[in-house]
Design a protein around this nucleic acid. Structure first.
Lengths: 209, 209, 209, 209
DNA sequence: CATGAATGAGTCTTCATTCAT
DNA sequence: GATGAATGAAGACTCATTCAT
């Protein structure tokens, strides 16, 4: 998954309806296999079979296995970043509590909306250039969030980028604990409330007036 | 032979001592290979060579590759949990700010002390029973932390286990962001200060007096 | 339609003309791909693309890949044999030196005229029935040449077929050395002169008077 | 077979007797498969099976299929060049007829001694760097031969290298015709006599006194 | 008829694991 | 016990061929 190198660029764009359906099926299948079997057992053959196609077809759309994984990861990160951007745009000028609440709601909506995908992608992120993509996604979200923080009514942050990054990483850490099942019983039901408490307390603590 | 005095008998038989050294070498080698080559290229042959032994020997100590990886992960998690336990024991009865500060210092000391190992193990955690081990480690730390929180002077928590879990997951999330390189520039230098701000603000917010 | 006069009907139906053009394009493309990529990378898709058509169309004209390769080889061998036949017919009754000179000139003209094709076809010759075709081409040329030798003025050969075969094989060996790049520097410029020397000396040596 | 690149260098030298036997078996098997099945069907699996080992073992000795093919080709070319060198050393100062006779005898002895190998290797020569190896072998033989020609008693050659190259290429052409079965009936029995006639006539023709 | 997406058998290659030395 | 050569199942990837559009 070496980021944007030519080697990892999809091979052809799905001009026809069938082709588009095939690509979509491959994405879905990849996430399913990743979830059920893990990264190491997520083989091209298994993905193709689950997608109802053949390996050959898979390779008509992606030059290699890593490119497919990267595409799936990128799609997911894109959706997440877009959702965050929409929310942040709406919150310019709001107060810190509103910001924390809305941000977390958005994040959880996307992440918990398709938990399989979210979960599966953690595995990809660590391998072969996945880090590069996650980095870009993170940077994009941090930039968006810190721009929003800078508009908070009646408040200033010494270093909005750092504050945004800490908030994002904390949220990610907690969501991941829930999704990967490391969380103690009851955690998931309280997740949203706890995150709001965590992040808004932190925002208040960091804010200069 | 029968005449060998007790004093001349090594405390640990030479065989056991050698075995311990070999296992240690294998652990170190595993982490090095994992770091330098990644999970997929972390082969038994490479590990054995880096450890200065042969594959055959590796299989004398571990029934298979996954067992070795699990052992390495378990050792690391054990060290972390022990360090947390020692710190928490020391903090019984302290105030929330002291708790947050000491906890984070301990965590960072272990994690950033050997960042390679920490980083490498994220890769293992997602595969082949790694989740199970992480879960156990987490539970152990959450239990320790929530026991400590329950002793905080002048304070009560509605659900100390949840509070501990949120704090731990947030810390993990931020540390991981730094270790895996997803953090924006400057994040790492401020990491400790930010975490203290994050966690103590959260503790205060959740505390009932 | 029934009224279409004979004059307006193309000599060859448009379908046939198009088919001929397509086949020709495929032949040319085959040689180009063979030259640029080598036998192993000479795939049907690549040939079709270079020819400006699709694989499907290729299979409309040839039942399989080997048939196409064989056709290309056969065409080339046919041209060579025809050129040799024309030359030999013209040389009936000439003397040995004239025969050697004209033969070699013809051979070189065809082979060096399109060195790519000549070169590319060596690769095919060794595989999948290519040997059979080369054998037939050789036999045809040997027969032609030995018939010519039998008419040489003032001379007789004990075994004209063998003499012709030796001459032909020697010429082929030298030309191939040049085309495949095994020849030492300067070889190619002297090729014609050297071959004439070689073959005419041999003819003289074998001739009985 | 890209010549001498690191990619094509054998992996380990046969220190032990068994290893040496395995490598030899692989060479023999390669030639057999090449002869019976052709270059395209000369797969690693087939070679290993014919050698009585497994693919894995093959790859313990050669980094890839081409490296094995190159090694086999190189071994053969080496044997041929050495034989030629020994003969040429013995012939310094001889006359042209003796040179031609001894050279051809040596060449045929090696080539017809193991016709399978000779034949098989033509196929390799055309692919993936095989040309490079053949070129080197050729150059070595041409150098040897032209040094010898320069010592011929009572004679001088204008360009001994070219003369040697032409002689060699002619011999190769004829031998190949016989080995690949393109020769007319009776050719093989007369091969040695014809070649002596061809080459000695040519040498005489080119010699200046 | 032309097209090119889909197929899947078959390549090369790797690597966890075994076992004779 | 230690070694490392041998094994072969399994993975990534290719490509001749087919067939629905």
């Amino acid at each position: 998954m070496a980021a944007a190198s030519a080697e990892l660029t999809p091979r052809k764009s799905p001009l026809q309806a069938r082709a588009r359906a095939t690509k979509e099926a491959l994405h879905v299948a990849t996430i399913q296999v990743l979830t059920r079997e893990g990264l190491i057992d997520c083989t091209t053959t298994r993905i193709a079979k689950r997608a109802g196609t053949s390996v050959g077809t898979l390779y008509q759309y992606y030059p290699n296995r890593d490119a497919l994984l990267a595409a799936v990861l990128e799609e997911h990160l894109g959706k997440l970043a877009e959702a965050i951007e929409r929310t942040c745009a709406r919150l310019h000028g709001a107060n810190l509590s509103e910001m924390a609440t809305a941000l977390i709601a958005t994040f959880l909506e996307v992440k918990l909306g398709n938990p399989d995908a979210s979960n599966a992608l953690y595995a990809i992120a660590g391998e072969r250039g996945g880090a590069e993509l996650v980095l870009r996604g993170n940077n994009r979200m941090v930039a968006t969030m810190s721009a929003m923080l800078a508009t908070a009514s009646d408040t200033r942050f010494a270093d909005p980028a750092i504050t945004a990054a800490v908030a994002l990483s904390s949220i990610v850490g907690c969501v991941r604990a829930v999704l990967e099942g490391y969380a103690p019983p009851g955690f998931d039901h309280q997740l949203e409330r706890q995150l709001v408490s965590l992040v808004s307390a932190y925002f208040e603590n960091e804010a200069e007036r």
